[in-house]
């Protein structure tokens, strides 16, 4: 087991390296840099540009060096906890990102739990009552969730939550808590607002999960050992719970790997619409103003979050299913 975990962690390293190179390339692609757009903006407003300070910053952050060198500088910083400097906020990236990253993790985590709670019973019901009206209508509702654009659902739910429950519009907490340190009242306020993004983000993932769980369980239910169990007179409920469900549970854990990127993706768009204090709005601003270290480190954080999530799901899967850790290769 330990060896499996070790090998699995080792595979993460090249993955993250390629990811970082990819992200850095994308951030580098547009012509010009933050300072150019900053100077243009200042001049448009008729203000004077502090050339000396700009040149100092440029040199300080290596914008006079070739991109490859800067990439390694940026990458090297990661190992000592230096993620670069945000020009727009004039703060180290870690200070800008910290709190928001925590909220992103919170939203994603609650969303996954929510997705499970919804998808699990519905998937079981759909599989055991295949081609019944219940199956059709639940599948349809799931598909509807998949087909509705997240941002519109977010907008509608925000409006109706405000109409019916008086929840304040936008943000992940009531406005009075925005700049306050974490406290119990703030945490409560966060949880009061959390359900809207969770439902909105969860809907798209849920539909996919229901369909996959249904398909997997159906495959399992057609196998002969289920027929044998039934023929022996085992109670249908037990014949379902004891083995077929456990078999499809494996896949459930494995599914986190594919659901997690989707959830973090969805979280970004919804966060922008609801102006949540997560990563979305910040990311877009950083990308548009070419605040490259902020944007790059941000994308990198999201990627690391996903990779770690997938790692956890893989390890959990290896615990559940010995065949996985015993098979030598790392590829599926």
């Amino acid at each position: 087991m330990l060896r499996y975990i070790f090998r699995r962690v080792l595979i993460m390293i090249p993955t993250l390296l390629i990811t970082s190179a990819l992200i850095f390339t994308i951030i580098e692609l547009p012509p010009g840099d933050y300072f150019e757009s900053y100077v243009a903006e200042l001049q448009a407003q008729g203000e004077k540009v502090d050339e000396e300070r700009l040149n100092f910053l440029r040199e300080e952050y290596g914008f006079d060096k070739p991109p490859v060198e800067r990439y390694f500088q940026w990458l090297g910083g990661w190992f000592v906890g230096d993620f670069g400097y945000s020009f727009a906020y004039e703060l180290p990236v870690a200070d800008v990102v910290g709190d928001r990253l925590f909220l992103t993790i919170l939203v994603s985590f609650v969303t996954i739990i929510f997705t499970w709670l919804i998808a699990f019973p519905i998937g079981i019901y759909s599989a055991t009552h295949q081609y019944s009206w219940g199956d059709y209508s639940l599948t349809f509702v799931g598909l509807l969730g998949l087909a509705t654009p997240n941002f519109l659902l977010a907008l509608l739910m925000m409006y109706f939550a405000n109409r019916w429950f008086g929840t304040s519009i936008g943000h992940l907490m009531a406005p009075e808590f925005l700049d306050q340190p974490m406290s119990w009242a703030k945490l409560r306020s966060i949880f009061e607002h959390l359900w809207i993004p969770v439902i909105v983000i969860g809907t798209s993932g849920t539909a996919g999960m229901i369909r996959r769980l249904r398909a997997n369980l159906l495959d399992e239910l057609q196998k002969q050992y289920v027929t044998t169990a039934r023929a022996k007179g085992l109670h249908p409920f037990k014949a379902l719970m004891k083995y077929p469900l456990r078999m499809s549970l494996n896949f459930f854990i494995a599914d986190i790997g594919s659901v997690l990127p989707q959830i973090i993706s969805g979280a970004e768009v919804v966060a922008i619409v609801l102006s949540l204090e997560t990563t979305g709005p910040l990311l877009i601003n950083a990308l548009q103003s070419q605040d490259m270290y902020l944007a790059g480190s941000f994308l990198m954080f999201l990627a690391i979050l996903t990779v770690i999530g997938v790692l956890i799901s893989d390890i959990a899967l290896a615990f559940l299913d010995p065949r996985i850790r015993l098979s030598g290769g790392s590829t599926k």
Partner: peptide, 24 residues
């Protein structure tokens, strides 16, 4: 295989955002 794994592990919408935001 590795490249596919990397691309699949990155959340797609932030990446789309990044690519779309850099269009002149």
């Amino acid at each position: 295989q590795r490249v596919i794994e990397v691309i699949q592990s990155i959340p797609s919408i932030p990446l789309w955002l990044a690519l779309a935001a850099i269009m002149p």
